[in-house]
Design a protein around this nucleic acid. Structure first.
Lengths: 215, 215
DNA sequence: CAATAGTGTGAATAATGATTCACTTCATAA
DNA sequence: TTATGAAGTGAATCATTATTCACACTATTG
């Protein structure tokens, strides 16, 4: 025995691995999963193609990890927004606004996570992601209904619907984030974005709160 | 000159072409675009791979045509539902129910049209498709607002939101229509489906009609 | 029938992109 | 030092599919 994995190496390996994930994340957040071929990732990370496979068994595994990481970050933010003090409608509003604003900010990433055509392995992951969002809303709704802060309704359907509203209004239309940018040289002003967010919020709150509600 | 395209031949060609489209449609409606490779389509149509190219310049063109056909049929139905007599909310309800019911019936087709990862050429077409749906709703909303049957709101955002609600609640969760079916041997009863449709309808109507509304 | 203009065929080709692998370089410890 | 085992390399290989093409077959007209 003349070789053993030392701590220094272990650390360096972790760093290298992390680097690959970062490179892949960058490509995804910047140009989508379509641009994240193994060789592109390798180039971005300044290593050889083969090296990627010393750290990940397959492209799918790598991209799943990237997806999971990005996703977790997003979901956490929304979950945090839910944990505001206040009535169920107020918390719901906070959550929806958080979700929507972040999607607008990181258009391309949002598109990649929500709408970009991806290979089945990642798509599977996406299901979990949407589920995670839906669950946040669902729990909140359930609680609100219990406390009679919200009218009777199917929490699971309403939750999925909210996710759908945001996906479609923000990400769907923007889906290929390039086309639009080619035409409108002017990017939509922050004012417009605010208007959009408030339209969406109004829609969802009214749907969920029904004939009472204070927006 | 010793040959000219006769009527009989013209007809036969049209038939052959139609057959290819039908075969492709069958595959798409049955197993999604992923299963509609050129050779699979050819086999389904009982012809040689190369023959497909005597009728279509590329796979993309063929699939676009399939997509467009299927799409038109769907959109027409919803458009018809809108043309009911009655108040804006009533017509909206009819349209949403029509959209939703059809999606539930033809799950796989709905999934292919709305959510399946597809190649960019078809994806482009999909954008138009969603737009078509959104426009139906948008016009209706605009009209309703004008007649004061609906409260002030952004018709374009609300319209997109409605499309999003239906996509997510019906197609998203069902997206890989197989997985679910592997577990639940029992398919969701018609009763459940009705409940689902009515939940969705309620959500959308309340969102759009606001603090008045009669569901 | 012969000449012409196709259509139908399916194996070969092309393009893309993931994965492998024989080899080189590096770190470790006897 | 030097033997050992792992990390890094990147060109070659594999797999998958769309697309082409040389050839066989069929219909049409003189």
């Amino acid at each position: 025995m003349a070789y053993r994995e030392t701590d220094k190496i272990k650390e360096r390996k972790a760093e290298a691995r992390e680097n690959i994930v970062k490179a892949a994340h960058y490509l995804v957040a910047t140009k989508g999963f379509g641009a994240a071929s193994v060789s592109a990732v390798a180039k971005e990370a300044d290593i050889a193609t083969g090296t990627v496979y010393k750290y990940f068994p397959s492209k799918g595994e790598l991209l799943c990890e990237v997806f999971r990481d990005a996703t977790e970050r997003e979901v956490e933010k929304v979950a945090a927004a839910v944990n505001t003090a206040g009535s169920a409608p107020a918390r719901l509003q906070a959550a929806i606004e958080c979700f929507a604003r972040r999607a607008i900010q990181g258009r391309r990433l949002a598109w990649a996570l929500i709408a970009e055509p991806v290979d089945p392995q990642v798509d599977q992951e996406r299901l979990i992601y949407r589920q995670a969002y839906a669950e946040i809303f669902e729990n909140l709704l359930r609680e609100g209904i219990l406390k009679s802060e919200l009218p009777q309704q199917s929490p699971s359907v309403s939750a999925a619907a909210i996710v759908g509203v945001i996906s479609e209004t923000l990400v769907g239309p923007l889906s290929p984030p390039t086309r639009r940018e080619l035409h409108d040289t002017v990017k939509p002003s922050e004012l417009d974005e605010e208007r959009l967010v408030s339209s969406i919020t109004r829609f969802c709150l009214q749907a969920v709160c029904g004939p009472n509600s204070s927006i």
